[in-house]
């Protein structure tokens, strides 16, 4: 079953990757855009290192949290189903407010209210949680990774100061693909 799932997943993913440009240019299917983003989020787990203490054990899961509205539907869950990162199984959790966020490794922030991100980031400050969002002011609000669309392609920004502060190590390979964000206030 797992193999079948994986194959199906891979197939979806492949479809996504191959056709991403087409999907994105349409700008019609939000779901397709988030399918790519879901895959991106999953792929971040491959290029980011979390400190050992962020896991309770060797087998404890790597938790991908979605704060606020879930734009992925079930797609994110399907993407990570059965996947592992260094032996840690990936699971998805959904949060309504930041207080609910306990043990978490990647948090996709999707709050409808603006200016709420600063609060969230402030609340998570010091914890090894990779915060990801596609909100325009996310980086300024102290977020770590922000998706943006350029030339009909989904790209992302990374705030190295924030990740460093959160004890997260971002692979240089990931950095090669990313636009590095610098806050300017130090």
């Amino acid at each position: 079953m797992a193999i079948l799932k994986k194959i199906t997943g891979s197939f979806h993913m492949a479809l996504l990757l191959v056709c991403s440009t087409v999907f994105l240019s349409a700008q019609t299917s939000v779901t397709r855009e988030y399918q790519v983003k879901a895959a991106f989020i999953f792929n971040f787990t491959q290029f980011v290192e979390w400190p050992e203490n962020s896991f309770s054990g060797n087998q404890s899961p790597l938790i991908i949290g979605v704060l606020g509205q879930n734009p992925f539907g079930s797609f994110l869950e399907e993407t990570v189903l059965g996947e592992k990162m260094n032996g840690h199984p990936l699971i998805v959790k959904y949060y309504n407010n930041v207080e609910e966020v306990k043990s978490c490794h990647i948090l996709f922030v999707n709050l409808p209210e603006t200016n709420k991100e600063e609060e969230v980031n402030a609340a998570l400050k010091g914890r090894s949680i990779l915060t990801v969002s596609d909100a325009p002011g996310f980086m300024q609000a102290g977020g770590m990774i922000r998706f943006f669309t350029k030339n009909n392609k989904i790209q992302f920004q990374i705030n190295l100061e924030a990740t460093k502060y959160a004890n997260l190590v971002i692979s240089s390979k990931l950095l090669r693909l990313a636009e590095i964000f610098t806050s300017g206030k130090k």
Binding site: L17, S20, N43, S171, K173, R176, L177
Partner: peptide, 15 residues
Amino acid sequence: ATNSTAALVFDDQKN
């Protein structure tokens, strides 16, 4: 190959 993993994963042809 090692360097191009991210480009492949993130579908970054340019990179």
